[in-house]
């Protein structure tokens, strides 16, 4: 069963002072992500990775093509019921505390007071922010804000995660924490779609990896085939299998 499905999606943005020019962001992108799969999207800056995730979140509408989650069109009511989304640069309300954000998340979901307390405590403990739960977000470092946003993302224990650069701005400990959370959700059977620049992390946790270049999905590989391909090639230097494959693919596309 496909959880994420996009079929021949095209997207362009109007740019310029008078919005008279159009810049292509995505061209004919199609892929499916099966249940319990971790699908990573990698690519250079401006390749269209985040746009895909935003289309799945219905923040951006594609010009052409169909996009669905759990076989429901993304624009339909309730299609995002069990999704946790972490944006690229998470922004929370600076004058509110993480606890207040989490309370908001619980109230929107209609949880009881008892359940709310339990969920908030669990989320805070998971990201190790219990001690600063009542501190306004504006006093947080970038890494703490990222962890706070992650707590908000996993608050309702979603079955589907969409993570846009979840490791950005994190120190090694924070990065490990995020990787552990993704792994935990993967083990629990969640379906995860995420994009990242940190190829070693992508390699560690993804079942399949899609490579984007200039708005096109140029290649999709499984983590296993990547290892075999890497073993069969001779000169790699200090590159990991994914780095090697990614650089080769992108160079081929450029030339």
């Amino acid at each position: 069963m496909s959880i994420f499905s996009c079929n021949q999606i095209h997207k362009s943005y109007q740019t310029g002072c008078l919005k008279h020019t159009r810049k292509k962001a995505l061209t004919d992108v199609s892929f499916q992500v099966k249940q319990r799969e971790v699908f990573g999207i990698i690519g250079l800056n401006g390749a269209g990775k985040s746009t895909i995730l935003k289309i799945f979140m219905a923040f951006v509408k594609p010009d052409k093509g169909t996009v669905s989650i759990n076989d429901q069109p993304v624009a339909s009511k309730g299609s995002h019921q069990s999704i946790g989304y972490l944006p690229e640069h998470p922004s929370l309300y600076p004058h509110l505390s993480i606890k207040e954000h989490l309370q908001f998340g619980c109230r929107v979901a209609g949880l009881s007071a008892q359940e709310e307390k339990k969920r908030i405590q669990t989320a805070l403990e998971t990201v190790d922010l219990t001690e600063v739960a009542k501190m306004p977000i504006r006093g947080f470092s970038k890494g703490m804000t990222q962890r706070a946003a992650l707590a908000y993302t996993i608050l309702l224990k979603p079955e589907i995660l969409i993570l846009d650069e979840p490791m950005s701005g994190l120190d090694p400990l924070g990065r490990q924490l995020v990787l552990d959370i993704i792994q935990e959700y993967h083990d629990r059977g969640a379906t995860i779609l995420f994009c990242s620049h940190i190829l070693t992390d992508v390699e560690r946790i993804c079942d399949r990896i899609g490579i984007m270049h200039q708005g096109q999905l140029v290649s999709v590989v499984t983590a296993d085939s990547l290892d075999k391909d890497y073993v069969s090639t001779s000169t790699k230097g200090s590159q990991t299998p994914l780095e090697h494959y990614f650089l080769n693919t992108v160079r081929t596309e450029i030339s």
Partner: peptide, 11 residues
């Protein structure tokens, strides 16, 4: 500031 994602992501 894209805080709107935080809200709209909650269905």
């Amino acid at each position: 500031n894209r805080t709107i994602y935080t809200l709209l992501a909650r269905n």
